[in-house]
């Protein structure tokens, strides 16, 4: 993917906090409409990377392009095309929600004639319709989070950068946030989202970018060409069953553990159903047949161990 085709394009990014390196040559690109999960341990450089993307820090070297705009050379134009919500954010507590959104729209160059409509639309999409005339100080944590997200998207930026957007939210609010982020991506917005809760990121991300010690240790789409399946036998010999499974088409990496036999399967759902029918037809006493997806967490931990040279 070329930089011109990418909604986010970063090349050779170096940043140091007064001599202490935080990013050491980070490069990646995100396609328009993608949702990239930014993951890594504490101190990996996730927040620094996001702050550089938002034009809040000037890199020591490297280039950053957002929606085709060079962030360092023209930060104002880039910011007009970008929404940014950091993990610790504030709202103007003495202003109403409507004025918080209005100020965000004004300061991100939304034309005056469009502002009232944008405020209503964002409020509706975030479930803030009934709160528009309430002071920000009177809102709950989840409501404040939604208002903050509203300020980041009111100018309909092509790129949205969210640092730990689910932090402090209750399970219901987290689920609503996931729905919202999927909707924004479906509308064509490119998202870069960091979180320590990988299961949530997995819900809505299309790509993953892994950082450790300021370096990219993994980047790519979250696709799973092979699924891990497992059958649990009601009786018999698991090892013998494993040997029999190896000859089936699309089956690899077979392992038996007691009466449980797990394997990777490359076929689609219909092939999976056909396999199950064949095994039952062959007289296998199958008590359970389940899919065990390789999680982003597994992938992340494997990459992290590899990057650190751990077994």
């Amino acid at each position: 993917m070329t930089a011109a085709m990418s909604a986010i394009a970063v090349a050779g990014l170096h940043f140091a906090y007064d001599g202490t390196p935080a990013l050491g040559g980070v490069s990646f690109a995100a396609a328009p409409g993608s949702v990239t999960a930014l993951v890594g341990p504490n101190g990996a450089g996730k927040t620094t990377l996001m702050r550089c993307l938002a034009g809040l820090e000037v890199p020591d070297a490297g280039t950053i392009s957002l929606a085709g705009i060079d962030v360092v050379a023209d930060p104002r134009a880039a910011r007009a095309r970008m929404g940014f919500l950091q993990d610790f954010f504030g709202l103007y507590d003495r202003l109403s929600v409507r004025r918080c959104l209005d100020y965000a729209a004004r300061s991100r160059l939304v034309p005056a004639a469009e502002r009232p409509g944008r405020i209503d639309a964002v409020a509706a999409s975030l479930g803030l319709g009934g709160l528009l005339d309430r002071q920000a100080a009177a809102l709950s944590r989840g409501q404040r989070q939604r208002v903050a997200i509203g300020t980041a998207i009111i100018h309909r930026p092509p790129v949205l950068i969210l640092d730990e957007p689910a932090a402090g939210l209750d399970p219901e609010a987290r689920a609503e946030l996931a729905v919202l982020l999927r909707q924004l991506a479906a509308d064509g917005m490119t998202l870069l989202v960091s979180s320590h809760i990988l299961a949530e990121l997995e819900d809505y991300s299309t790509d993953v970018l892994m950082l450790d010690a300021g370096q990219v240790i993994g980047h790519g789409p979250l696709v799973q060409p092979e699924r891990r399946l497992a059958l649990v036998l009601a009786g018999g010999d698991g090892a013998a069953a494993a040997s029999a499974l190896v000859v089936e088409a699309g089956v690899t990496a077979v392992a038996a553990e007691g009466l449980t036999v797990s394997f990777d399967f490359a076929g689609n759902r219909a092939a999976q159903a056909a396999l199950l029918a064949r095994l039952v037809g062959a007289g296998w006493a199958i008590a359970a047949f389940e899919e065990r997806q390789g999680s982003m967490q597994d992938l992340y931990l494997a990459r992290l161990r590899a990057a650190r040279g751990a077994p």
């Binding site: 104002r76 507590d93 300061s107």
Partner: peptide, 15 residues
């Protein structure tokens, strides 16, 4: 603004 944690949001605006 710095104390209220709104400064970075302002800096990230197009003003």
């Amino acid at each position: 603004e710095v104390a209220a944690r709104t400064w970075d949001s302002q800096r990230a605006s197009a003003l």
